[in-house]
């Protein structure tokens, strides 16, 4: 690990950059990235007539929390939040059981047709949700699960993407580890649990975040399989404020956006380091 900063600053030097310059660039980039979020926050605290001003106003001239009050008046956002959390975690928990098991098989075991089967998993990854909406709906309907939270989770319990990611991570663990574990009498599921999964932790966390974000933002499937507000999720509530014919009610829409994205933002801040690590993780060293 000690070698990295050295090569890093060497690389910077080659590019003609020093740390100060680098920080300035990063500052600019992060300002650009964060600006829309702050703009949304600012809009959510404005009165309607203060939204479109000739000179952009970052600080609301007449700050108000009324938009948040209106938001909760128009739709049960608290309930939607609970539903979203239930659905998203319900999907993730099962995915974290099914995906490592499948990935372990594809990474470590050789059997007839394993390549073909893995190919099928990849095909699932490439299939857009729109292509399978009707068949999935028929299945859910046949199971009598329409208009339930389960209907929003079930189709995502097996994820080709998760299997693919974890298989790649598992394959980077050298054979020597497995041999060593085998000698100590640790094989199969125990090896998966005690050796592979801990080593693949950054991948697991990265996938978890991706899964959470994807299903947090999912709109079409929940809209189609649910009817009653009692089981519906945040994105459906948010969509009530984006209107096709008349444009949008911006302050309330932004209040909704802030409310919907805030939990994700907090989650990311907590797991930020792990998340970044997992993308830099380039196998074992030494």
């Amino acid at each position: 690990m000690r070698s990295r900063p050295a090569t890093f600053s060497a690389a910077l030097h080659r590019l003609g950059l020093n740390r100060l310059l680098l920080h300035m660039i990063l500052l600019i980039v992060s300002t650009i990235t964060a600006a829309p979020y702050f703009w949304a926050l600012s809009t959510s605290l404005k009165l309607r007539r203060d939204v479109f001003t000739p000179v952009p106003q970052w600080i609301p001239p007449n700050p108000t929390l009324q938009n948040y009050v209106d938001l909760f008046y128009m739709a049960p956002f608290g309930l939607f939040l609970v539903n979203t959390i239930l659905v998203v975690s319900g999907i993730l928990v099962i995915q974290l059981i099914t995906a490592p098991l499948a990935a372990y098989v594809f990474a470590r075991l050789r059997f007839a047709g394993s390549g073909f089967l893995f190919g099928l998993f990849l095909v699932q990854m490439m299939m857009p949700i729109h292509a399978v909406v009707v068949p999935n709906y028929l299945t859910i309907n046949a199971m009598g699960l329409l208009d339930t939270r389960l209907a929003m989770m079930l189709p995502f319990w097996a994820s080709g993407y998760a299997v693919f990611l974890l298989r790649q991570a598992f394959r980077q663990v050298p054979r020597d580890f497995e041999d060593a574990a085998l000698i100590d009498g640790c094989s199969g599921l125990r090896f998966l649990w005690h050796v592979l999964l801990p080593l693949a932790k950054p991948t697991v966390i990265a996938f978890s975040l991706i899964s959470v974000v994807t299903h947090w933002n999912d709109f079409l499937w929940p809209l189609i399989v649910t009817d009653s507000p009692a089981v519906r999720t945040l994105t459906i509530g948010l969509a009530m404020f984006v209107q096709q014919e008349s444009g949008a009610d911006w302050p309330v829409l932004m209040a909704g956006t802030i409310f919907v994205t805030l939990p994700l933002l907090l989650l990311f801040l907590v797991y930020q380091r792990k998340f970044i690590e997992s993308f830099m993780y380039a196998g074992l060293k030494g």
Binding site: V133, V134, Y137, L138, N141, L146, F219, L220, L223, I224, D227, S228, P229, I236, A239, M240, V242, Q243, Q244
Partner: peptide, 24 residues
């Protein structure tokens, strides 16, 4: 009557089509 909010026009049409095809 149980009102079901179904998005704006395009999602509404998708929901209607899926439900009709699904026999529901």
């Amino acid at each position: 009557v149980v009102p079901v909010y179904s998005g704006d026009y395009d999602p509404t049409m998708m929901k209607v089509q899926t439900a009709v095809r699904g026999g529901n």
